[in-house]
Simulated assay, not measured.
Amino acid sequence: MGLLDGLMGNVSEVDISSVEKELEVIVTDNENIEKAYKLIRDLIVFTNTRLILIDKQGVTGKKVEYHSIPYKSITHFSVETAGSFDLDAELKIWISGTANPVSKQFKKDKSIYDVQKALASYVAK
């Protein structure tokens, strides 16, 4: 998966070293980035302690929202696959203390399963 996949809305795994440099200002000293996925210009980052959802906003992408979710706060999650007429797949994550899930849209491809598998491995620890 490469640049074209990212532009099409497909998620692709990202080299950890580039993400470490970008997130050095928010990652703690005893925290390690273990996996990262790019979705257009947003990122889904798995560390040894939390899930970080990075939403780059605006035309330039200089405004950034960092949504930090400790794994112990994730009560459950779901994957809704794309159908024949619905071309988007969706990942929903429920966090304790909130009624509505955090939601990420994916294009119709198999990469949502990679993210779901990573999420399952971290939440099940």
Score class of each variant (00 low, 15 high):
residue 106 F to D: 00
residue 29 D to G: 04
residue 54 I to N: 04
residue 7 L to I: 12
residue 26 I to N: 12
residue 93 I to M: 05
residue 67 H to I: 12
residue 78 S to L: 08
residue 18 S to N: 14
residue 14 V to G: 00
residue 35 K to C: 10
residue 56 K to G: 02
residue 31 E to P: 14
residue 25 V to L: 14
residue 96 S to T: 05
residue 73 S to V: 03
residue 13 E to S: 10
residue 80 E to P: 04
residue 100 N to P: 05
residue 15 D to F: 03
residue 115 V to T: 01
residue 31 E to W: 15
residue 41 R to W: 12
residue 44 I to T: 04
residue 86 D to Q: 11
residue 86 D to R: 06
residue 53 L to T: 00
residue 125 K to M: 13
residue 86 D to M: 08
residue 113 Y to A: 12
residue 125 K to Y: 14
residue 76 H to P: 00
residue 8 M to C: 12
residue 82 A to F: 03
residue 89 A to F: 00
residue 101 P to M: 06
residue 70 P to K: 03
residue 5 D to S: 10
residue 94 W to D: 07
residue 104 K to G: 02
residue 7 L to Q: 08
residue 50 R to P: 01
residue 59 V to S: 08
residue 117 K to I: 05
residue 30 N to V: 12
residue 77 F to V: 03
residue 58 G to D: 09
residue 104 K to H: 09
residue 50 R to Y: 07
residue 5 D to E: 11
residue 122 Y to Q: 12
residue 27 V to A: 10
residue 94 W to M: 08
residue 111 S to M: 04
residue 50 R to W: 04
residue 1 M to R: 01
residue 98 T to I: 05
residue 94 W to E: 07
residue 9 G to S: 13
residue 12 S to Y: 00
residue 39 L to M: 09
residue 36 A to Q: 05
residue 10 N to L: 02
residue 26 I to W: 09
residue 56 K to I: 00
residue 40 I to A: 11
residue 118 A to K: 06
residue 35 K to W: 06
residue 10 N to M: 07
residue 59 V to Q: 05
residue 66 Y to T: 10
residue 95 I to M: 04
residue 47 T to Y: 06
residue 36 A to N: 03
residue 45 V to A: 07
residue 14 V to Q: 00
residue 12 S to I: 01
residue 98 T to E: 11
residue 41 R to Q: 12
residue 61 G to H: 13
residue 76 H to R: 13
residue 97 G to L: 05
residue 76 H to Q: 09
residue 7 L to N: 05
residue 125 K to L: 13
residue 60 T to C: 08
